[in-house]
Design a protein around this nucleic acid. Structure first.
Lengths: 244, 244
DNA sequence: TTCGGAATTCAGCGTACGTTGAAATTATGC
DNA sequence: GCATAATTTCAACGTACGCTGAATTCCGAA
């Protein structure tokens, strides 16, 4: 080995001591969880840590305790694996948010900004808190590619409908406010929310231990007040100044 | 060539038609701009597009129109190049924000949240709008690594002092409000701000052309109202509920 | 004028990457 | 029971990666 610097991160995947590699289709009683699922789990976690380019297919395969070639069998190539990771959780997330928004508008008499924002945010926080562990990785991954130039395509493909649903509800809460303002405000909300869900513990270190990013209940409460307050302040400022 | 999929992005760097590769130290009249600077510029732009792992040293060298080996001569290795990119603009940015905050507190009689947030945000927006083109890439890069688990180290090393300065000013604007709340609120601000400066044009597509992420004046105005409103709403909610 | 050091190119080392084809083993439908 | 399909491992291909040592050319100080 010749030096091999590049110390941005350095971590071997533990290579979970596979027992006896046996060729061919596995006996159906082999181990409940199928290789495809294990690959998605491993990839989810690794992509969340280092992004698409920072992970090699062999690392994913090792972490999943299967052969590399299985990635190409199940997902065609590395990009396919990435898409698989992304899609698996996008569907349930989008449904959960849609249901949450719908439940809110049908349960209340007069919709409020706070209520709408809560209905949009809560499913994510609840999944991160009480869903299986992969959700945390997934949100970290989404946060990462959301701030990436090439991530737009995927984000839009899966999440735009959801956002338009939110905007529609918000327009009922703030009648007469131009959509343009609501989109801007949503963009700010998205930035805050993704950083809160990213799992990076910036705020812990910044605040020297006063705040804990992992405490999502604390984050939920504050994010709600902050975003609702921001929305209201923005549209009232817009109304007062009467700009387009 | 064997197939070479991985279509997350596909782009060759144009390889700017180097003229006459001449060995040895260049004549001082060769071309004003030194290779070191050209490498930083090229790396800045490429890292901003695809992140640390998504860029190869050869791509950087080609874009800078110099030999790869120069990267290792000037920066020791790929990580060193990355650090070089990061540091070059961090220093002036931190100074600009410090000066801006200082100018604000000395120029006004009673500091406000809005004023403090403006003093913090404006230097970045102004640099992105009126600084040299590299600033846009730089902010895109910062936005990207800020949402990354491994980015914390660098972000903290360069930007924490600045944030503490902002928090101090904010505490004067909101006397009695606990620091904990201010740190949370800053975290939300940071998320919104970075997304706004990231150069990703999410909001353009989302709003179907109503909003333009490139219109930083529009973003500045709204980000200001939004964040100031959020800060105020958050600390008042905290005061009313009287929680720790 | 000389000479050490600064800045550059060149050619290549060793490794790890994404990907594949073939073989092996089991499951499933007729 | 038998053919076919599904799922896996194995061994390798060709390429591109990060990085380096040596050679080359020019600058600047003595």
């Amino acid at each position: 080995m010749r030096k091999r610097a590049v110390t941005k991160l350095d971590h071997k995947v533990p290579a979970k001591s596979r027992k006896k590699p046996r060729r061919g289709r596995p006996r159906q009683s082999d181990d409940g969880v199928k290789a495809r699922g294990r690959l998605l789990d491993a990839a989810e976690s690794l992509f969340a840590e280092r992004g698409f380019y920072g992970v090699t297919t062999r690392q994913v395969a090792d972490a999943a305790d299967v052969d590399v070639a299985l990635i190409y069998y199940h997902f065609k190539n590395k990009s396919g694996l990435f898409d698989g990771v992304f899609e698996r959780r996008a569907r349930p997330l989008v449904s959960a948010r849609r249901d949450s928004l719908h439940a809110y508008v049908t349960s209340t008499r007069a919709v409020t900004v706070e209520g709408a924002v809560a209905a949009f945010i809560n499913p994510m926080i609840d999944l991160s808190l009480h869903g299986d562990a992969g959700w945390k990785s997934y949100f970290a991954l989404v946060a990462q590619i959301d701030n990436t130039p090439w991530g737009g395509e995927i984000i839009h493909r899966f999440f735009d409908d959801n956002v338009h649903e939110l905007i529609d509800v918000l327009q009922n809460a703030l009648p007469g406010s131009p959509k343009k303002e609501l989109y801007w405000a949503y963009n700010f909300l998205a930035g805050s929310m993704m950083l809160a869900l990213s799992g990076t513990e910036r705020v812990d270190r910044l605040s020297q231990g006063l705040c804990h990013a992992k405490d999502l209940e604390a984050a939920r409460l504050r994010l709600l007040n902050y975003c609702a307050g921001g929305f209201l302040a923005m549209v009232t400022a817009e109304r007062l100044s009467g700009r387009a």
